[in-house]
Design a protein around this nucleic acid. Structure first.
Length: 786
DNA sequence: TTGGGTAAAACCTCG
DNA sequence: TTTTACCCAA
């Protein structure tokens, strides 16, 4: 066995199949905990070490920045182990410190540095820093490589300004948030304003299309892109410019995509363009020296709210593959062996997910022992729930000396649920970290300082400019700003900056405030001149002083101000670290990195703290002990999904994700009463609780858990159904789980779920031999057998 | 122009 | 309960 292949011996046959795949398409259907990250990293290492692929030709898309970082680290280790054998003839651990340093630096320079690994957003931002100036918008808008990236709040205020000011519409009727959401959705499905209008030709659709057009114009005027544009613009650029596409197509011969079930239409278009060089997909056949390798699990698709579409994964073989059935195909491999969780946990997870209708058939096979039973706790309210869970944590930590605080995770549906747990954890002095919530880069002081940097890099960015022109106070108030903006508008939408830099105009328009405006523009100009010569960190350091920002915080002198000061200091550390760790150290690269950072990226694994996070954030992570909390109707599944069977299935997948995070112990809990906005509301147990297999669960509610838990739910349903339609025909809606029915087309079956409430009820019915189908009793003839 | 006050809205998930 | 938006006095 040669040195370059013996690391493959650690893999099981399916993993090995995936890892050794060289050219052509491959879909890896990878269940939770089946070693998919390992398959990805090993394959990249194998491409380079065995097939001698130039690292420059590899593009790997991950779901988070953190995953990208970890993948790079793991590949680095694999490279190092192989090179140690090859160059020194001994294992990595036997190398002297000097040789090790030398080897690592050589590996970084020749191999790791050239790999493109990152999220869709980060990779696309990088491509755009090369090529955005070649992009031609149909309306003639232009962007430069110093474009700003607008976050969600920037985007929403832009939409709000268009709705209320430019179009003079009621922002109650056209809620900026929902309009922005509609635009985002359109972009994620690769729809232009015209496309959108064609799809929704009604009044609302036309208005939104109009806002969308103006919104895009606004972005262009600011030389800015939103998150969705980061993907959409490269797609359009590739579609319109053969040379640009040709370059990247030639460069990225081997493309790998993780979490493929969570890609949206636009991201799919991007991948397809890069793979086929724009050729029609059914004609593309040139797989020599080229591969596309995607890894995903339809059962873990939980991002449909940002237009992710798991049918893209289901269609992979039709798109790229040989179109053969599962058993014969050479373009799909399934990883079904789970190395993470105990058999009990897997049993519960498998049982739950079987309630979904739309999935690729797949079971997680246990490789570990049975493990402890799952415990389900019914609490009186959210405080009692937190008390119970923290008591369990203290207890387990006490009884099992091998457990650290960081081995525990509390997973919930919404960020707002963290508070109760934080209070109790604080009371017992248990260290914890809340992941999600307010991101570091979303704090006010950080956004302020970044806005300064953004204006310095991109003065056309009027949104950032307005944010800081009067921070700290320079006597430039609302009315002054309004006059200046009007002037910019009248001159045909020139950037505000152009008005500000003309001293005469400023003196005419701003009057008393002119002094402050001029001071501000002078400040920005000073740093713009240094943009090419100075490092970002140097600019930031001087700026904090010269702008008076730090001074103002010190003068304020409150505890809060000192906390902000600390955060600003931390930002300075962040930029220093960025410059140290990254190949591309420009201020532009740092700003993009800051815009795209997620709170998940800052998860501290060394800190030994209990982790609190949403189920969405927990994807891809694992913990020995997991608490899955708040399993109540309306909370989880969330109330917005109650009436929509497809949405309920997504909530169920989310629950599946939560369960499969657990390695050793799983606790599930719900409360009978919960505080919402401050007032107490009664809560009923989640639909999902009744779907868990009784014999693997212990509970504090006595034996016979599913019966007892479904009863109150049935009563609520009955009440809701009766209330929804008083008088005649209430019996139509009075369905219960377990009802035997006869359907005019499918024959007899059993009701297994009830979706929604009132007159919007849908039933999931299991028909022997035909499987489970979701049926609207109002639209089909259903007869109940008594 | 600024700062303080009160009233109304917000809590779904995210790069 | 907490956060944000808007109004008015100084």
């Amino acid at each position: 066995m040669t040195a370059s292949t013996d690391f493959l011996a650690q893999l099981n046959p399916s993993q090995r199949h995936a890892v050794e795949h060289f050219c052509g398409p491959l879909l890896v259907v990878a269940g939770a905990g089946s070693g998919k990250t390992r398959a990805l990293t090993y394959r990249i290492a194998n491409l380079v070490l065995t097939h001698r692929v130039d690292p420059e030709n590899i593009l790997a898309v991950t779901f988070t920045n953190k995953a990208a970082r970890e993948m790079k680290e793991r590949i680095d280790v694999l490279f190092a182990e192989q090179e140690a054998q090859a160059n020194y003839g001994k294992p990595l651990s036997a190398l002297s410190a000097r040789d090790l340093t030398q080897l690592k630096s050589k590996i970084y320079k020749t191999l790791t540095k050239h790999l493109w690994i990152g999220t869709f957003h980060a990779l696309c931002a990088r491509i755009l820093r090369f090529d955005i100036e070649k992009y031609q918008h149909p309306n003639g808008y232009r962007w430069t490589r110093s474009f700003s990236i607008f976050d969600e709040s920037d985007a929403q205020s832009l939409v709000k300004a268009i709705v209320t000011q430019a179009l003079n519409l009621d922002d109650k009727k056209f809620n900026p948030r929902s309009v922005r959401y509609a635009i985002s959705n359109a972009k994620n499905q690769n729809l232009t304003p015209d496309d959108f209008e064609r799809e929704q030709p009604n009044y609302r659709g036309r208005v939104i299309a109009d806002v969308y057009r103006r919104y895009q114009q606004s972005l262009a005027e600011n030389n800015a892109l939103d998150f969705d544009d980061l993907i959409l613009v490269p797609v359009h650029l590739f579609q319109q410019n053969e040379q640009v596409l040709g370059y990247w197509h030639k460069r990225f011969r081997h493309i790998l995509v993780d979490e493929y079930q969570d890609t949206n239409r636009t991201q799919y278009d991007l991948i397809r363009l890069l793979v086929t060089n724009g050729e029609a997909i059914d004609r593309f056949n040139d797989w020599q020296h080229r591969s596309v390798f995607v890894v995903g699990d339809a059962d873990q698709s939980i991002y449909s709210f940002r237009a992710a579409d798991f049918t893209i994964l289901m269609n992979f073989q039709d798109d790229f593959g040989d179109r053969l059935p599962d058993d014969d195909t050479r373009t799909m491999v399934k990883l079904e062996e789970n190395y993470r969780s105990t058999a009990n946990i897997l049993e519960v997870a498998n049982h739950l997910i079987e309630n979904n209708t739309e999935r690729i058939d797949k079971v997680l096979r246990a490789t570990r022992g049975e493990g402890e039973s799952i415990f389900c706790y019914r609490a009186d309210d959210e405080t009692a729930e937190a008390d119970f869970i923290v008591a369990q944590i203290r207890n387990l930590e006490f009884q099992h000396p091998e457990l650290r605080w960081s081995d525990f995770a509390i997973l919930y549906r919404t960020n707002a649920q963290s508070r109760a747990f934080e209070e109790v954890l604080t009371r017992y002095s248990i260290p914890y970290q809340v992941v999600g919530g307010l991101r570091f880069y979303d704090r006010r002081e950080i956004k302020d300082v970044l806005a300064y940097l953004r204006v310095i890099a991109n003065p056309a960015d009027s949104v950032s400019l307005k944010r800081v022109i009067n921070v700290p106070k320079r006597g430039v108030g609302k009315s002054t700003l309004e006059k200046l903006e009007n002037a910019a508008q009248t001159l045909g939408g020139v950037p505000l900056w152009e008005i500000l830099t003309d001293e005469t105009s400023v003196k005419t328009l701003a009057g008393r405030s002119a002094k402050g405006v001029i001071a501000f523009t002078q400040l920005i100009k000073t740093y713009r001149d240094r943009l090419d010569s100075a490092k970002g960190s140097e600019i930031l350091q001087d700026l904090l002083d010269a702008s008076g920002y730090v001074e103002a915080l010190k003068t304020e002198g409150t505890d809060e101000a000192y906390e902000r000061l600390g955060n600003v200091q931390e930002l300075y550390n962040a930029i220093l670290q960025f410059e140290e760790e990254n190949e591309e150290t420009s201020l532009l690269a740092f700003l993009a990195n800051a815009s795209l950072a997620s709170d998940l990226d800052s998860v501290d694994e060394s800190g030994n703290m209990v982790s609190l996070m949403t189920l969405h954030s927990s994807k891809g992570l694992e913990f020995p002990v997991v608490f899955l909390v708040g399993l109540e109707q309306g909370l989880f599944p969330n109330f917005r999904s109650l009436e929509d069977p497809a949405a309920t299935e997504e909530e169920r997948r989310l629950c599946y994700v939560g369960i499969t995070r657990a390695k050793e112990r799983l606790f599930i809990s719900y409360a009978r009463e919960r505080r919402l906005y401050g007032s107490r509301e009664p809560a009923s147990p989640s639909l999902f609780l009744a779907e868990l297999p009784t014999d693997h669960i212990t509970t504090n509610v006595g034996l016979g858990l599913p019966q007892r838990m479904t009863t109150p739910m049935r009563e609520t349903r009955r009440k809701q159904a009766a209330a929804a339609k008083p008088g005649s025909g209430a019996h139509e809606f009075d369905w219960n789980v377990g009802d035997q029915v006869v359907h005019n087309a499918f024959g007899s079956g059993e009701v297994t779920h009830i979706f929604g409430a009132g007159n919007k009820i849908c039933l999931a019915i299991k028909f022997p031999g035909l499987g489970r189908k979701i049926i609207d009793p109002k639209l089909s003839t259903l007869q109940r057998l008594e």
